[in-house]
Write a protein that binds this DNA or RNA. Structure first.
Length: 418
DNA sequence: TCTGGGGTCCTAGGACCC
DNA sequence: TCTGGGGTCCTAGGACCC
């Protein structure tokens, strides 16, 4: 059995290019929410030296000088393009695990001699069907497939790499830094280096008890996986979330409780919607607020949790709890940058039980109302129907100055060929 | 003017139980 | 000298991922 990791190259930038051919030869960058940082760059933009994560306002010179095309994050577009890529991958292998918006693992039984050819065929098919370039890495475990993908990304000629047989060798693995391994973050990188472990080959040959002591069983699993022993399970369907968070920085700083409350209601509605899509209810609502830590002014951040009388996925319940929590932590005189909602103690609908205070018919009514709300917003776009407490004007909403059209999800914004 | 958002898992230690 | 043995649950903190 082979694990393959398929990773879309510069995914957000690629999505913008697919839908707008005039960008083909222009450097493209995509910004984070609020147009804060650069979070995706096409190869041309990378070549200009624009760093991943760089604050946008520090890149304006280079952007102007080289006529770089800039886009705000357009999740309506990226989410839909992701679905198309994943649908394509589903035709390439019997088992597909969607790992993130731009990555998926495939599990497939391919003869060793045909692995390279298979990887190339996956890449070619996704390109032909969606226009998105991908890299494909293959190996005996997920971690090796990830590592192979890292190598594939550097093979701009083929875009694929099979890590096994002759390629699973000391010289190749010695040339790869441990930081490239899935599961080795900054802290572990530094710790391992301080013990003389710098490259993947050294990590593979490290002492088990040392790894376990310093990196727990999680780290030991990583090392086993590098040795070709699968330790990380396969997930056919994403497990339901145990916590759901909805939070954004404001487009400008907010001082009034009224505006914070609107934003809290808005994020409550988003979080409750996510809760219902996984057929679950939450037992507690946490609200957190914070000022802008980058500003030299009085700082305040705090959170409060309200435990619900009974588990709920009913948006008004969540909004009410968020309101109570927010009022308990709000302090006047600060310039707030952010508010967020977290839902916890999440259980599936089946485990809900009616209490003395909630008769079943009332429960049914609320359930049907939320279904109607979700269905309208699914068909006509998020925000078609919303709660008045979310605010009509939403002056605090995030900046998205460079937003591209929702090319693939809105009839009015569909690309036109002349 | 200006610095993202959303998750999971593991461990240690304390409270509490019989 | 020496202070039972075994278990669960919860939380905070630390690590990682995209």
């Amino acid at each position: 059995m082979w694990y393959a990791l398929v990773d879309c190259n510069n995914f957000y930038a690629s999505c913008e290019k697919v839908c707008n051919p005039s960008l083909a030869k222009r450097p493209v960058v995509v910004l984070s929410n609020n147009d804060g940082n650069v979070i995706a760059r096409c190869p041309l933009a990378k070549a200009l030296g624009i760093e991943m994560g760089a604050p946008f306002h520090r890149c304006t010179n280079i952007i102007q000088k080289h006529n770089v095309a800039v886009f705000s994050s357009n999740y309506a577009l990226y989410g839909d393009m992701s679905r198309r890529v994943m649908d394509t991958l589903a035709t390439c292998a019997p088992y597909v695990e969607v790992y993130s918006i731009d990555e998926a693992f495939l599990l497939h039984d391919v003869p060793h001699a045909e692995a390279q050819h298979y990887a190339l065929s996956v890449r070619q098919k996704v390109m032909q069907w969606t226009g998105i370039p991908v890299s494909v890495g293959m190996g005996a475990t997920k971690t090796l497939a990830k590592l192979a993908n890292h190598i594939a990304k550097k093979r701009t000629d083929s875009g694929v790499f099979v890590l096994s047989g002759d390629s699973y060798c000391q010289s190749l693995l010695e040339a790869i830094d441990i930081a490239e391994v899935w599961g080795i973050g900054r802290r572990y990188e530094r710790m391992l280096q301080s013990h003389g472990i710098y490259n993947v080959w050294q990590l593979i040959n490290a002492d088990d008890s040392f790894i376990k002591k310093k990196m727990t069983v999680v780290g030991l699993r990583t090392v086993y996986e590098l040795r070709g022993i699968p330790c990380i399970g396969w997930e056919d369907a994403p497990p339901p979330k145990k916590t759901i968070v909805s939070s954004r920085s404001f487009g400008r700083q907010v001082e009034s409780l009224h505006e914070l409350d609107q934003a809290a209601a808005h994020y409550s509605a988003i979080a409750a919607g996510k809760l219902r899509t996984q057929h679950c209810a939450a037992g507690a609502v946490t609200v957190f607020v914070s000022t802008n830590p980058f500003k030299n002014e009085p700082q305040y951040s705090c959170s409060a949790t309200v435990v619900l009388d009974m588990h709920s996925a009913y948006t008004p319940d969540i909004i009410a709890a968020a309101h109570t929590a927010l009022c308990s932590i709000y302090r006047q005189g600060y310039r707030y940058k952010k508010v967020g909602i977290m839902l916890t103690d999440i259980i599936p609908y089946q485990e809900l039980s009616p209490t003395l205070f909630m008769h079943m018919d009332n429960y049914e009514k609320r359930y049907r109302l939320m279904q109607a709300l979700d269905s309208v917003n699914r068909q006509h776009g998020r925000g078609t129907v919303y709660f008045a407490s979310e605010g009509v004007v939403q002056p605090w909403s995030m900046r998205r100055k460079y937003l591209s059209p929702r090319y693939t999800t809105h009839w009015n914004e569909i690309p036109v060929v002349r």
